[in-house]
Simulated assay, not measured.
Amino acid sequence: MAGRLVTRKPSVDDAKRLTGPERAAVILLALGEEHTRLWESLDEEEIKEISQAMASLGNVQANVVEDILVEFVSGVGGAGSIMGSFEQTQRLLTSFMSPDKVDGLMEEIRGPAGRTMWDKLGNVNEVVLANYLKNEYPQTVAVVLSKVKPEHASRVLTALPEDFALECVQRMLRMEPVQREILDKIEQTLRNEFMSNLARTSKRDSHEMMAEIFNNFDRQTESRFVTALEERNRESAERIRALMFVFEDLSRLDPGGVQTLLRAVEKDQLGLAMKGASDTLREMFFSNMSERAAKIMRDDMDSMGPVRLKDVDNAQTTMVQVAKDLAAKGEIMLAGQGGDDELIY
């Protein structure tokens, strides 16, 4: 996919470090598209497991390929280096599976991790899952929530409308054992209507991913990269800058969000971060502390004396990351830089 950033594993230089599915993936990649009949002897779950291993395999050095092939069949010579990727996996599967089936399998690989449908649902954000389930019948929701882990089910119930959630709880209390064909139908619906859409919509724009990387640079490195990028591609630089969430953007937090953040950040980190903050942001933090806590913090900051810019940058980056983590849990809301639109990180 054009513009898509792909993170690959480090080059594999030891066959002993590979799992069984990864070894199978190496063999099938080395054999290539001319020997796809081997795939036909595998069941769907095995194909899925090997495909997942193949898609994330990365570069495997030639000596490792040779070791694995020699192990697989005596007398095979060096096969050369191979590369496992989403694109290579998709191309290989297309040679013996229908395009629709390949698309569904690849979307599932790119989607939430997990061997079974219920494992995958357990890795879906509770708000996202609740937004889908609130349009289903309460009995269906009761079945789904009875199959996922209790701690995840509790978070999903909390995110559902209260009356609907209570109806689902009542159905769960009265629920009889679910027939296999009904369970299969619910799994199929979730796979076709929810997981496939989730995999498609979760593919992130490359500018969004790069903005997240830039957020983790120190101030000088960030400035250097943005300036250099502006000279080569001003449009991309502006898009990245608009997507970045930086320390000064914390000024957009509402009072409740500020107080939640202050409770989550260690006091020494807060003092360091505020040493490099604007007067406006600094006063916003002080105004959300008690008078005594604000006085203690001011005294602590004064007693620090001169501090290194690098330490201030690190503290501010830590605070931004804490804010993003709180936002991901739904405890605070972060406002984006694009005007009145709100973004959840």
Rank of each mutant, 00 (worst) to 15 (best):
A2D: 07
L5D: 00
P10R: 03
L18G: 09
E22C: 10
A24Y: 09
V26N: 00
I27C: 01
A30T: 15
A30F: 00
L31A: 12
L38W: 04
L42C: 10
M54N: 02
G58F: 00
A62W: 02
N63L: 03
E66S: 13
I68G: 08
L69M: 10
F72M: 07
S74F: 11
V76D: 03
S85P: 00
T89F: 00
S95D: 06
M97K: 03
M97T: 09
E107V: 01
P112V: 09
A113F: 07
T116N: 11
W118Q: 10
L133K: 04
P138K: 13
P138T: 15
Q139G: 01
V141F: 00
A142G: 10
V143G: 04
L157N: 12
F164W: 12
F164Y: 14
C168V: 14
M175L: 02
E176L: 10
V178F: 00
K185V: 02
Q188K: 11
T189A: 15
L190Q: 01
S196V: 02
L198F: 09
S202V: 06
R204P: 04
S206G: 15
H207Y: 09
M210C: 15
N216V: 11
F217E: 12
R219C: 15
E222K: 12
E222I: 05
F225A: 12
F225N: 08
F225P: 11
T227I: 03
R232V: 11
R232L: 12
N233I: 07
N233K: 07
N233T: 06
M244Q: 05
F245V: 11
V246R: 11
G257E: 03
G257W: 00
Q259Y: 02
E266H: 10
E266W: 01
D268L: 04
A273N: 04
M274I: 08
F286H: 05
M289A: 03
A294C: 03
K295P: 09
K295M: 13
M301G: 08
M304Y: 08
K310E: 07
N314K: 13
N314P: 04
T318G: 04
V320E: 09
V320G: 09
K324H: 05
G330D: 04
M333G: 14
L334F: 03
